[in-house]
Write a protein that binds this DNA or RNA. Structure first.
Lengths: 246, 246
DNA sequence: GTGGAAAAGATGTCTGACATCTTACCTGGC
DNA sequence: GCCAGGTAAGATGTCAGACATCTTTTCCAC
């Protein structure tokens, strides 16, 4: 966006330039996750700039989550996780969303996840099936706090997205599911049989995916999400005035 | 692990601390978007730290997209856009994706966008219609480089997502559309009538949305994306070995 | 009143120094 | 010979001052 303007009339600052060069080096895997970057002084010599410039470039890369800086040790390339990539999006949503977002989240799931279930039935591997089965078992045996139940519930859906074979799906689903986890925990707290319902429907989806039945997988997911919608509505009626804590 | 150790063993650096304080001030709207922040020297005095610390804190906030820094003018609070929130996600995708992602992107659009068109037909406001009409006109009259055509094309789809009334949709669609813009420009370069096709189908979708026909809007979008899929396949056949530049 | 030059104020960069943290080495005692 | 502890080396963190460059304002001359 601002790239166009920066080429015309604007001279990118040295720190920006250095930052881009390091970022590119990380991008093309010249430095792999976990690797230690050259020291500040080495970079100063290599780029022919002062320590100030190198440090400010490093701070920007650190803020972007690409590197970690440890005092006395050095700078290290971070393995960018999907979760950390989704974190700024979550921040943004938490700052901008109104109360209605709860139903927006539900509707977004109703758009994405039936298609995901369908794709998973067609493309799932044996590894995917093992992961999904483990997710269901973990949820079935869990008796812990609602937060853990919520996380286990989420894990099944993320792994299902992974099984879809479309590498975008887990990334699109992740911010949706991690949006205000307290919402999901609220549901698990407000709805008594939420866990049993989840286990049941997850199992049904799993069976359809295992047998390769795309139609059944989609149908099961649609039903699962209808119930999730009802749960969300019930939770909203109980807590009509959820004010952001922050 | 334990709180005691974390308080003892973790001493956040000064620049981190200053960054957090400024970020909090922005979050609680002590500084509103567009406002000018105090100058470096004023902050130095206020926080009792050196210019180095303030500058590095500012660089981090800049990298996070919360402020903009203009040489000779000052630092300004940016209105956090969905785009900047999606930027880390885009980086992540660009770093992790294989060549197959091109078709993954197309498939993801085929899942999301028909539903978006349907919702837009139901929920669009007059403002939405004005924006969409302007987008189509801009694309129709554009004769510029392929990059601009690609951007204008994208804008229509983002605005359509906005018109859906589901605040998650623009945010989910943004990373998809901005994924490697060169792919879209490649399509505009490889396919002669790509622009005319886009204008035609955008207009058809617009008409359906304007008249409030959800079924027609979905159908038009499905057709539009079928053609987009064909374009992508043609582009892939022409450039069977797209190697990352730089 | 207008135009342009100069001044003021802001960020960008450089330099050198010292502080603090981590690691490795090296030495002393057992 | 081995282990413990201190010490030194190397890395990032912070400070201070200076100058460069860009933007805006001021003010003087025409």
């Amino acid at each position: 966006m601002s790239d166009i303007f920066s080429t015309v009339g604007k001279k990118p600052s040295l720190s920006k330039s250095v930052e881009s060069q390091i970022e590119d080096a990380i991008r093309v895997r010249a430095f792999k996750p976990g690797d230690r970057l050259p020291t500040e002084q080495e970079m100063c010599a290599q780029f022919g700039v002062s320590r100030t410039v190198v440090r400010e470039a490093a701070r920007m890369l650190h803020a972007k989550g690409l590197i970690s800086i440890e005092k006395g040790r050095g700078m290290f390339v971070r393995s960018v996780s999907g979760e950390s990539a989704a974190a700024p999006m979550n921040r943004y949503l938490q700052m901008h969303f109104e109360r209605s977002y709860v139903m927006d989240v539900v509707r977004a799931r109703q758009i994405l996840e039936p298609a995901i279930a369908e794709l998973a039935a067609k493309n799932r591997t044996d590894d995917d099936l093992n992961r999904l089965a483990a997710d269901i078992d973990a949820l079935r045996q869990a008796e812990a706090d609602q937060r853990e139940l919520s996380d286990l519930d989420t894990q099944f859906h993320i792994d299902l997205a992974r099984a879809s074979g479309n590498s975008l799906m887990p990334l699109l689903l992740d911010p949706i599911h991690r949006l205000l986890p307290e919402i999901k925990t609220s549901i698990y707290a407000a709805v008594d049989d939420a866990k049993e319902s989840a286990v049941q429907w997850h199992s049904e989806i799993f069976e359809a995916v295992r047998s390769g039945s795309a139609v059944a997988a989609r149908a099961a997911m649609v039903e699962h999400l209808k119930i999730a919608e009802a749960h969300a509505e019930r939770m909203l009626r109980r807590q009509p005035k959820t004010s952001p804590v922050s």
